[in-house]
Computed example of a mutant assay.
Amino acid sequence: MGQQKHNDEVQHYTELTGELHPAAIRGRGARTNRVGRFEREERLRVDDGWGSLDDAKETKTKVFSDPSRSVISKNLSPDIPFDLSFNPYKGCEHGCIYCFARPSHAYLGLSPGVDFERLIFAKDDAARLLTQELSKASYRCKVIAFGANTDPYQPIEKEQTITRQALEVCEAFNQPVGIITKGYLVMRDADILERMARKNLISVAISVTTLDRKLARTMEPRASTPMRRLDAVRRLTALGVPVSVLMAPIIPALNDHEIERVLGLSARAGAVSCSYVLLRLPGEIRDLWMEWLRMHYPDRANRVMKIL
């Protein structure tokens, strides 16, 4: 009865005000900082009445330097359509609650929850390291996927510019690149992308999960709005950059009814292809997802999970 009462209150609050429930952390997808699977102890925050939970709603992003000595990752999985990838950041400010990269923060001793969204590790030396790796006699040229794990155009890229620096290196080496993003910030680098497109060196995949502003705001809180993403498809296409759209993930009873509309608008914007992935909930993502789903969509949480 207690959980049902909570669910009813959450739903009523959202319907009445059109705003996030107070229990949600504004600007963040995850609600909690659940410990990773490598931790020996589970910690539970309890309000003692003296404001002890105030820090739990900390939203300020903190950026740390990542000490990686290489920046090109190799993929050996046959079900992933690329062999090489480059990720400028560990963690992602976009805060997509379903993000498959969340468990990677557990390897750093941090939470795949809110920590993943606000404690970001930047590869400051990426351009130099990328230059070194592309210069090796043993390097065999293949398409490098930018953003295979976390988004290369998340908000902090505006100041960090690591993605742009890496693109400049790839342009100089005639290195083919495939970008995956849901950030409109990709348009900042339109000059480089247009030049690379003339040489057949670039493709961009824009993620459009939903056209519902409310759903996007709660599920992908710091990502560009859906219409801005479609505008990026349109503008990049006009520059001669081949663009595909990823409708991923497909979530039964939440965004699956939008498939035809997303496809139609993407095609009209100039997308050359569209692909999808069904929602997957490996590792710590499942518990984080369930917290989010029961908070924001308690009326259909059981149905979503039953279909999945």
Rank of each mutant, 00 (worst) to 15 (best):
V35T: 10
R300G: 03
N33W: 09
K136V: 00
D256R: 10
S85Q: 06
L211D: 02
V35G: 12
Y107C: 03
C96D: 02
R300P: 03
R128P: 00
P252N: 11
L167K: 04
M219V: 02
P81K: 03
S52V: 05
A205I: 12
P249H: 14
N149Y: 12
C170V: 01
K123A: 10
R286L: 13
F86A: 07
A23F: 07
E117L: 04
A24D: 03
R43Y: 14
P88L: 06
R286Q: 13
A172H: 06
A216F: 02
K182M: 06
K214F: 07
D83A: 12
C141E: 15
F82D: 03
I180L: 15
R234T: 14
E284I: 01
R102C: 03
I72W: 06
I202W: 10
K123I: 11
E159W: 09
T225A: 06
P221G: 06
M219H: 09
Q3N: 08
L76Y: 15
R228D: 12
F64A: 08
R43M: 11
L84P: 07
G49N: 01
V233I: 09
M305C: 05
V71K: 02
S207R: 00
D299C: 06
H6Q: 13
R303A: 14
L265N: 00
E284V: 00
P298M: 08
G29R: 01
R261I: 12
L201H: 08
S52T: 07
L134Y: 13
D124M: 03
L201M: 12
Y153E: 03
A248G: 13
R234E: 14
N174T: 02
D124C: 05
K214A: 08
R294I: 00
K5C: 01
S244W: 13
L246A: 11
A216H: 02
V241C: 04
I72T: 11
V71G: 08
E159N: 13
F86K: 07
N302Q: 15
Q4W: 04
S104H: 00
E93G: 11
P249W: 13
I250T: 12
V143D: 13
S77Y: 11
K123Y: 09
K142W: 07
P155E: 14
N174Q: 13
L20M: 12
A24P: 04
I162Y: 08
G109L: 07
P78C: 07
K60H: 12
